[in-house]
Every structure is written in C-alpha cells, then in structure tokens.
Design a protein around this nucleic acid. Sequence first.
DNA 1: CTACTTTACGCCTGTCGTAAATATC
DNA 2: GATATTTACGACAGGCGTAAAGTAG
Lengths: 305, 305
Amino acid sequence: MIEAQRLAVFREVAHRGSFAQAAQALRLTPSAVSQQMAALERAAQAGLFERSTRGVTLTAAGQALLRTADTIHGELHRAERALARLREQGPPSLTVATFASAGMLLLAPALAALNDREDRHVDTTVIESEPQQALAALDDGSADMALVYHFHTEQPPPSWADIAHRYAYHPLLRDELRLVVPVGHALARRSTARLDDVADEPWIQMWDLPGNALDALASAHGLRPKVACRAGDFPFMQALVAAGVGIAFIPTLAVVDRPDTRALVLTPTAKRYIGAYTAPGVPSNHASRALLDALKARATTVPMS
Amino acid sequence: MIEAQRLAVFREVAHRGSFAQAAQALRLTPSAVSQQMAALERAAQAGLFERSTRGVTLTAAGQALLRTADTIHGELHRAERALARLREQGPPSLTVATFASAGMLLLAPALAALNDREDRHVDTTVIESEPQQALAALDDGSADMALVYHFHTEQPPPSWADIAHRYAYHPLLRDELRLVVPVGHALARRSTARLDDVADEPWIQMWDLPGNALDALASAHGLRPKVACRAGDFPFMQALVAAGVGIAFIPTLAVVDRPDTRALVLTPTAKRYIGAYTAPGVPSNHASRALLDALKARATTVPMS
DNA sequence: CTACTTTACGCCTGTCGTAAATATC
DNA sequence: GATATTTACGACAGGCGTAAAGTAG
C-alpha cells in the first residue's frame, strides 16, 4: 500500500523539519509536498507529523517510517553506484569508509593479499573518515563497508543503535588505549600508569569520539579532567603531546614510534574494539565477502607492538 | 534516477522469469510490464534481461538490482506490518521465525523472562519454520528475527550468503549431533559411536538440512549411506528410529527422552550452531534488542543434557 | 505581519490497455 | 502455430503548480 516513491519526499521532510524547506530542496512547491504527505498518511493509516506553523515534527509512527525511508534511500543510491561501476566493465568494485589507522594496518594489507590473486581482484575506493561519518556514508549509500572502532564493549555503543542495527557487524580486532606523555614527563620512565596519575593534567581529546568514551571513563573514576584542546586524528594528538600541550590517550595501533614521546600501559586497561559494518547492497555477493575474509585474516596477524 | 516503484514490477519479473507471468500476477497486461522494464533499463543505463521467446533471464546487472529490489520490498512490507501493530496502541511487537527446538528451549524462556518485567513487555508472534523458510520470511518482511541453525562452522554456510549477508547475525549457542538408534540395536549399549559403525545402515534424513551437512559429512568419510526416508522434524525422525526404519543423527537439544531409543555420542563430534538474524526494520530499536539480550542470557544457562 | 500548511482547480505528464506486429521454438 | 515480447496509439488517472484560504506565533 505504501508507495516507495513518496518515501523520498517523506525523508526530505523529516530531515528538514518542514514541508516548505523540503519542497525547496526537491524543487517542488509546498503544495505538492503537502499533497504527497497527505496521501502517504492515508496509505500508512497513521498520523506521521505533528503540524505547527513553524514546521513539523515526527510522531512515533513517523520516526519508525523514517528508518525504512532511510534504508531504502541508501539501497537505491548504492544500487545506482554499483550499476555505474558495472557499466564500466571493470572488476568488482567496493567503496570502503575507514579511519586512518585501520586503513593502514588492516585495509591496505588485506587489499594487497586480495589483489595478488588475479581472480579475486577487487577495485576499491577508500574514504577516510571517523566512525560517525563512516556510518553516515554507509547509511547514505555512499559506501559498501565501514571500518569503525568503539570502546567499552564488544557490542557497538547504544548511540549507534539506530544506524548500526541496520547492518551486519563483523568484529575484527581489539587493541588497548595507551597513555602518551612527552619524554620529559614525570611518568615517562614508568611503563604503566593509572588514570588518577594524570587527573590534574590537561588532556588532548579527539573530536567526536564514539560515545565520548573518555569522558565516560573519566567520570566513572570521579575525574573532571581539563581538556587542553581537541584534535581530529591520533598522529596530530601525539604531536601535540610531544609539544608539551598535554597528555593523550591513544590506541596501540595508532601510536607512532617517536623519540619525543612515551606510551604507557594503562591500568586498568581500556580496550578499543575494531569491526566492520557491511551494507546489504549490490556488490556484497563476491567482493565484500572476499574483502571481509581478507580483513579477518589480516586481523589475526596484525602486530600488536 | 531509478524509481523505486518500478522495482516492485522488476522483482516480480525476476522471480517469475517472464514478463507475461509477472503481468498476470500483478494484474497488468504484458504490455505495461514491458514498458515499465524498458523505462527501468533506460534509468539504470544497463541491460537487465536476456530476452527470449520463452521468457527472460537476468543479466549480471539485473541480478545485482534484484538484491536491491528484494531488500526494498522486505523493508516496505516490514514497515507496513510495524505501522499496523503500532496503530493498535499495543506494546512493542515482534514476529520471530524459529525452528521447533529453539522455540521451546530458547525463545519461550527468553520471552518469559522478558515479560516478567512489565516495562519490557514484548508482544511476540512466533512462526515455526526451518532455517531456509525462516530466512525467507525475514527477507520477505514477514519476520523481524529468525532463529536458525547450521553445521560445520561458526559462520553461516555459503549457500545462505545472498540472503544472510543482508542481516546482522548473532551467535547464540552450539550443541552436537547424536547418533540415535533403537534399543534393540547392536550399538544400543555403547555410549559412543563412529560414522563408520553405521555406514551400511539405512539413514533417516531431514528435508532441507542447511547445506546438506550430513551428506557432506558422510562423503568426507568416503561413505555413501542409504537414505531410508526423509522427515520434516526431529521428533518425527526419532519416532521413525524407534519404529526400526533406520538410524538418525539428531542434535542434542532436539533429542527427546524415549525408552525405545538410545542417543550415542558421535566421535569425532559434529557440532550444530544456533544463532539469530535480525532485520534492520522498524521495531528493532527497543524490542528486538531486548529480546536478543534475553536470548543470549538464556543461551548461557540452557541445559546441555 | 510573517511563515507555514491546506484546499480547490486546471493542466499536463505518465501509465495503462487494446490491438497489431515481430520473433523464436 | 503457439507463446512471448515489442510498438503504436488513445484514454484515463494522478501529480504538479497556481492561487487563495486558514492558522499560529
């Protein structure tokens, strides 16, 4: 009964929060959007919006339908990209969104192993992005696979539930957080440290850490750390540490070997979990399965220095 | 560019293998279907069919698009069901497809534990079905979760790749195959047995065992067993064993305690893996996550007699 | 008054069916 | 010749825009 065509309009309305803005984005008149949504509500036999003169908000039924609309939008987008690539007569092709350290340590070697065998060659486009953006790319249909990390538990954090539950998750690897300090630091000659040891020092944190893991970790210990600054990637954070701006917590796999910093084991250990989300989409049959196998194989042999 | 509406027609064509039959199923004329598919091929900028006078077959591009069409169809169907249930103002509701023994030993206790707490009450519809049909129900949008089993490896068998790769998989439990013989059997007083011991006896097998696990197991040992008959569920198989029709291999959790049969441990052991597939759909946010947690909790305490 | 949604109505695009043509087994 | 797909063409439904009305801040 529900026509998929209308869901594209519905999705635009839901994301913009107003019929008028959605109409403008879709190059339609507000009238057309209103009629479409009225028809959709009839088909769904449920009210989808709370109307007001300052736009609309979704009802519970509307929020439920939005997830469906998002999924369908992503699938269509992915299908179009897949058809475009297939038209070029090239080898099977994938787009993978990954954060930097997994790209270097997992994805690149996995691709190398995969492409050694001519029959399993996979033409891969890589988008470097942090987990939040990687999942958004997956959701939007711009990527077929997303390599992500998260803290605390093997299962992805609740804040991802809406998006993450729509895709298959494959655990790959886990590493630990290290406390990185400059060589001149009081702790630099020790090999382990506790959170309390640096409670009063300025911390260098990451933008958009999934679930604000470090904040949660700190408050669980009753700490209110001073945040010296926030950076976008781990190597930059480590450079800031070397410059004496503050201390930082960096996952083992992202720590680079620099003479001007030391990486200390944290007790109790805080683990980081790395995994892959795969989209249900078009190229999954061969290429994404092959790549996933290669990633798993690589994950078992990655050096945990 | 690709209009989702046409994919419903495309899907019907792909499954029926002919424009004419699809037209009949959709209550359209072959002409309309032909025009729709011509428009779809223009939008996709790719040939989707190999035409012949005995129907059509899909090209590579067509097969790719079919997966997208199936996913979208399932999502729409699931959304409609979810909206219908939400309209009744009832508690969150799920439909779960399960095979019989998991229904009794896992699902029922998990639901009982879940519904004890009033705030986590979940209204559940159960469809009893073997793994193949359970996945089909998931794919079709008729179910939100599927409890399935498979053999050999923790990962689902390759024959499920097309369907299973589109959903998140959650391992739950594993048990072992037992060799079930009648009390009068030569082996009845032993506690363990090997495949070779029953190489020459008639076997009672299951319809649609995932991946024909037993056939693979037998041929790996160089055996060509005689299949006495095939049954649809394990209790019936065991009854046939008691009646002297043949011997059977039945998973521990499905073996019932009867005085006229004996269950022998198999060496080397053949394991059965039980897990759940969850759909990305509408009600996943709360209900399916809660049920999954309850299933996992139950799986750790299930008796492995 | 402003910004948004809704309704009424006419136009127009797009889709369907009928009918005839074409092609293959 | 039977069955299936394709094309041409006319009819109809549905969606869009214009315009005007209604409404809340």
